[in-house]
Amino acid sequence: MTHQLNMKGVRKTYATGAVKVEALRGIDLEIDEGEYLAIMGPSGSGKSTLMHIIGCLDVPTSGTYELDGTDVSLMTEKQLADVRNAKIGFVFQQFNLLPSLTALRNVELPLVYAGVHATERKERAMAALERVGLGARVQHRPGELSGGQQQRVSVARALVTDPALLLADEPTGALDSRSTAEILDLFDDLNAAGRTIVVITHEADVGARARHLVHIYDGLLRESTPIAVTGATR
């Protein structure tokens, strides 16, 4: 069986002025469907760059990257946009909800870009919001919701297109401990239901909740330690 995500020899080099920075120096990564993987690393380790490439926000300088059977390493900006829309659900540290739109409209947004009809869009957005336990707050704007609720709205937004991969970048970085627990519980539930999740974090307790954990240092994945305890036994 092919992997849901298959990365081979991925390198990323940035040229800032005269200095060339090698952010990624040959990453091999395979993620199967239903995986819950945490990628941990300190600042400057290349974890943001890796997250951008996994999220198809950027393309590797060299190497190949297949997502859900599609090679995305040589795609154009437009093709990448379509891949992001269909196959990746993003959860950001700062939530990145549009403040002028209601929770429902925020969740509908990926479906708008997918060209989904208004009625179906609303139904699916409602279902996603109910899935994260916010069915009663669909008409609230982000400013009227707590941080944890806002992050749940953004999880709903990430789920609404039924993507191959839920990609979370420091999802609890801006949350208090109670909200952090809520979001991590939600991730556990989603993963238990078969959703593939990749979490980028520098917080050890967040990393510990994943089924597998990899560390990234200086642009290389150092080790891949299965933490069978958490994911498997729960």
């Binding site: 946009a81 950001f92 870009y113």
Partner: peptide, 16 residues
């Protein structure tokens, strides 16, 4: 800029 970036991340093409 942030809003544009978000819309792009969510699948808005440059043309859109």
């Amino acid at each position: 800029v942030r809003e544009i970036g978000l819309r792009k991340a969510l699948g808005a093409t440059p043309a859109v």
